[in-house]
């Protein structure tokens, strides 16, 4: 009788150990591009420009019509007729729209000058440390020419030269 109870208790223990050990090693492992950790970055993936919210993955038709006519636009088809990429150029940013089938989504946003800031108040020309203090150190990759924050397929990349930001890009990489 006691033997069976002992058996029950030790199984309870094993079960407890197994289930709570689950939570620690729940971390995703980085892709092969040297992305070390991918904690939840506190960075957001949209920009406000001319009081229009432009977000990665958003429906492009609404955004483009809200922004009014672009300075210039260029669209190029993929080989094999699989979708087209269109670049819309505005005064201080460029938007790349990927259209495949019936859906058109914002695939990439490039900030050209410091007239536009990221929600974390960083802009072209800011210093590298300003980026880190504003966006935190949850970056997925850091080299001397770039800092990248990643969440799923959305990325925010700061291109650097001699410690200052020369380019800011929001990219989608599926």
């Amino acid at each position: 009788m006691k033997r069976i109870f002992a058996l029950l208790l030790c199984f309870l223990m094993i079960f407890a150990v197994v289930s709570c050990s689950k939570d620690e090693n729940e971390e995703e492992n980085g892709g092969d591009k040297g992305i070390t950790t991918s904690q939840k970055s506190s960075v957001s993936f949209y920009v406000n420009y001319k009081s229009v919210k432009i977000e990665l993955g958003a429906d492009a038709k609404a955004v483009i019509s809200a922004l009014g006519t672009a300075k210039s636009s260029l669209s190029m088809g993929n080989c094999g007729g699989l979708g087209t990429l269109t670049k819309y150029v505005y005064d201080s940013l460029e938007i790349y729209v990927l259209a495949s089938g019936s859906t058109e989504t914002v695939d990439q946003i490039t900030l050209l000058d410091d007239a536009v800031q990221t929600p974390e108040k960083v802009s072209v020309g800011s210093a590298k440390d300003a980026v880190i203090s504003a966006c935190g150190n949850g970056y997925s990759k850091m080299t001397d020419t770039s800092i990248t924050y990643t969440s799923g397929s959305k990325n925010l990349k700061f291109t650097l030269r001699d410690g200052t930001v020369t380019g800011i890009d929001y990219l989608t990489v599926s």
């Binding site: 591009k33 040297g34 260029l74 460029e94 490039t110 990248t148 291109t159």
Partner: peptide, 18 residues
């Protein structure tokens, strides 16, 4: 071709081991 400006920035230029 009319637009000769630089192409869009890419996430990572490092060619992968694969």
């Amino acid at each position: 071709q009319t637009d000769f400006s630089k192409g869009r920035t890419e996430l990572d230029y490092e060619i992968s081991d694969n």
